[in-house]
């Protein structure tokens, strides 16, 4: 094999390195640099379509939710309210509800009663302001209702996209799945910036202004409970729920992860989650695990309780149970 190379760095060019720049090379270099710059500008042209105020210095300097002073939080909430009004034409009230002392939320779902009507999934959308194209678009709902074959609890043969004339179908039963608010939550463990964490009442929340959108939490979640805003949320003004909270149902920016918070904006104010209120069969039981006389504790102590994917070790606060 010949190693007489054709040399890309010839002695001549090396010599030029040692000599002062002359007029010709300078002009040539300038011309090339201008062509390069033109290319760069052309490549970056789509950035002109960025909405004003989408990336502001204030946003970049904002601290993590748990490090914000009350005054900062107040200012940010007001500016988010104004932003929502400017972008969606509706002015919401964005509250900041803190966890209550002596409360640890728990949720149980009666698989014997659930008929798979998906009212909970729709109520979730109406309450939590998720992005959707039309009323039938429930992709971003925090609840996925699975149609299961009777005879086993087998997710592999389940169908989340069932669409029969009537429910329940004869050979099927139905299993709604939403965030289990795990005590050993894989999602909060993997987040590189602690944008998601567990509050002292057990709810796992996300700071949408801190999330960097890496989606590692989505890979970690065994319950498919997290949604990502691949685009700026689309939601009609009349569909917007104005009663909002900073850590839950305020309208999300694009590029961040969101999830079920057991309707924190309701439950921390003493109300039931939207999915429970709408359930026509009373399959859902919600309450305070720390109160020994609560209904949820009665269920956990007296019914046949099933924990989804207990083997993964996540220790959920969401339980399934059977009547008979």
């Amino acid at each position: 094999m010949s190693h007489e190379p054709e040399n890309s760095v010839s002695p001549k060019t090396i010599e030029q390195v040692y000599q002062p720049m002359n007029r010709r090379t300078f002009l040539k270099g300038t011309a090339a640099a201008m062509v390069g710059m033109a290319g760069l500008v052309a490549a970056l042209k789509p950035l002109l379509a960025l909405e004003r105020g989408e990336v502001t210095l204030h946003d970049l300097l904002q601290k993590h939710y748990r490090e914000l002073s009350p005054a900062d939080l107040e200012r940010i909430r007001k500016s988010l309210e104004a932003k929502c009004e400017a972008e969606y034409g509706v002015r919401p009230t964005i509250k900041d509800l803190k966890p209550l002392d002596g409360v640890g939320f728990g949720y149980a779902l009666n698989l014997t009663r659930c008929i798979g009507c998906r009212k909970c999934a729709h109520a979730c959308l109406a309450e939590n302001n998720q992005s959707r194209e039309d009323a039938n678009d429930i992709e971003m709902s925090y609840i996925r209702v699975l149609e299961m074959n009777k005879g086993a609890i087998n997710l592999e043969t389940s169908n989340a996209y069932y669409d029969p004339e009537k429910v329940p179908q004869k050979d099927k039963y139905y299993m709604p799945v939403q965030c289990h608010q795990c005590a050993q939550s894989p999602c909060t463990k993997v987040c590189p910036v602690q944008a998601t964490w567990q509050e002292k009442d057990g709810l796992v929340v996300v700071d949408y202004n801190w999330c960097i959108g890496c989606r590692y939490c989505m890979a970690a979640c065994p319950y498919d409970a997290r949604r990502f805003n691949f685009k700026k949320p689309t939601i009609k003004p009349e569909a917007i729920n104005r009663e909002q909270s900073y850590l839950s149902n305020r309208i999300r920016p694009k590029g961040v992860v969101e999830k079920c918070t057991f309707c924190l904006q309701r439950t921390r104010a003493g109300k039931y989650p939207a999915c429970l209120e709408v359930c026509p069969t009373g399959a859902r039981v919600f309450g305070n695990l720390l109160d020994p006389n609560s209904e949820i504790n009665y269920i956990l102590n007296n019914k046949r309780v099933y924990i989804l994917k207990e083997d993964v070790g996540t220790q959920p606060r969401f339980y399934y149970f059977f009547d008979k």
């Binding site: 052309a42 042209k45 789509p46 691949f230 685009k231």
Partner: peptide
């Protein structure tokens, strides 16, 4: 630059 252009689209429109 072609890739950068595609990325600029992604940055504006989201993923």
């Amino acid at each position: 630059l072609l890739g950068l252009n595609a990325y600029a689209h992604q940055f504006v429109q989201g993923l």
